[in-house]
Design a protein around this nucleic acid. Structure first.
Lengths: 228, 228
DNA sequence: ACTTAGCGATAGTATTACTATTATATTTGC
DNA sequence: GCAAATATAATAGTAATACTATCGCTAAGT
């Protein structure tokens, strides 16, 4: 799978950057190091000044790539969802049976992220952790409607849409396919967070995975006839 | 119900404030106005300086009640969950039938919040909006483990625990009662957010409520036998 | 050889999130 | 009714943040 993916570029809304970070070594360094640093010190403590210091570049140079911190987060998380979408499509497109297809999709989305050597400057494992810890901060803002109009969340919404369609194929009678799809994506992040920080309010742990929990949830919800 | 509740004080971890805001007019003004302002301008744009100006008080006076902005958010959201817990217990404690009880609990948790005149300085409708938009920012931090140890999230976790117990009473065989309980609380907030900002990835709207969606989800999940 | 783009360096700004100190107003205890 | 304690206001100050603006160097393209 690795070699096959090499060279596939994840397309990000070009309003999210001033200059494409993939177009230069400095740009890739910004991406590479920002992932390491945000994961290490957290979004709130992360600054362009600190980032510049770490990559031996000037703060002002980073602003030539990203207008501000917020857009860097949108870029990183968009990349993550684009990468995830690519895996999702690749793993499911040849599956005919709707149920098998949906189960595969849930597996891809909810599983523990492992390293992907196809993108040398991006550590997907750490990026996944960043998404778990920081993604909601990218849309829980007063600017969300304006930014949504600009298409900043399009990849994420497209993923939810794909999942919704798979749910519909399994059970066309089910009333809440979009809500269930968005719940799957969001609960995955949440359950991963809970097992690391609030163990008492989740059943997920080293042996029980969010995949098992969500698979069970979806299967039972869709198989059930409308009742009660 | 209103008069009955009058005088019931929501108990908040006293490490969350320097001086109890309920103990003075200024304190209540801080709470009242911060709810209005955070709702209006959002958490990121909210500052103690602006708050002081609005209530005709000095910034430094606010610091006599809350050590910092973050603890104010923890206070407000703790109060909200305490208030919610109170309603939950009140509405369910006398119900014997486990299924009826759980359905009532889901209704309380997921329904649209309406005004509660028992707490004059707190606008519960706006506070609910703040919880939807800002609650996750209170725990998605690098300090979460330390703050969790201090008991800053105890009310929320207790609520999840109550819900988990009700789930267990309905179906003792179900493998993921804690995860399902945390999903219910979190998905409620998320679906409410989606219907206001990302309508394309939810089925909830003016006529379809998160209550209907989540009730259906839980009922079907718990009624189903373990299979497939 | 000339232009241009890319980057680094420096300086500067308004704002934030506080802390510290002093002064004044208010409450309370006697 | 007055002193003492307490609460609040006013002012000043700090380090850090999130930028913006300008300038100069350098290396690459034409």
């Amino acid at each position: 799978m690795d070699k096959l993916l090499q060279g596939v570029k994840i397309r990000i809304n070009d309003k999210l950057f001033v200059k494409d970070p993939e177009s230069s070594e400095l740009g890739k360094n910004i991406i590479r190091m920002s992932i390491l640093m945000i994961n290490e010190i957290g979004w709130e403590n992360f600054t362009f000044k600190k980032l510049g210091k770490q990559i031996g570049s000037n703060e002002s140079s980073i602003y030539r790539y990203f207008e501000n911190k917020h857009k860097l987060l949108l870029y990183l998380t968009s990349w993550y969802w684009g990468w995830m979408e690519y895996h999702l499509v690749l793993a499911t497109h040849s599956i005919g049976n709707p149920k098998v297809k949906l189960l595969k999709a849930i597996d891809i989305i909810t599983r523990e992220v492992i390293e992907d050597t196809a993108y040398l400057h991006i550590n997907e494992v750490l990026l996944n952790k960043i998404v778990i810890n920081e993604y909601s901060k990218s849309y829980l803002t007063k600017e969300v409607d304006a930014e949504n109009k600009e298409g900043y969340f399009i990849i994420y919404k497209r993923m939810v849409g794909r999942l919704r369609d798979m749910i519909k194929d399994v059970n066309p009678e089910y009333t809440y396919p979009s809500s269930l799809a968005s719940t799957i994506l969001e609960s995955t992040l949440h359950q991963h967070f809970l097992k690391d920080h609030f163990t008492s309010i989740t059943d997920c742990n080293a042996t029980v995975t969010p995949t098992q929990y969500l698979t069970h949830l979806v299967v039972n919800t869709l198989n059930q006839n409308v009742n009660e």
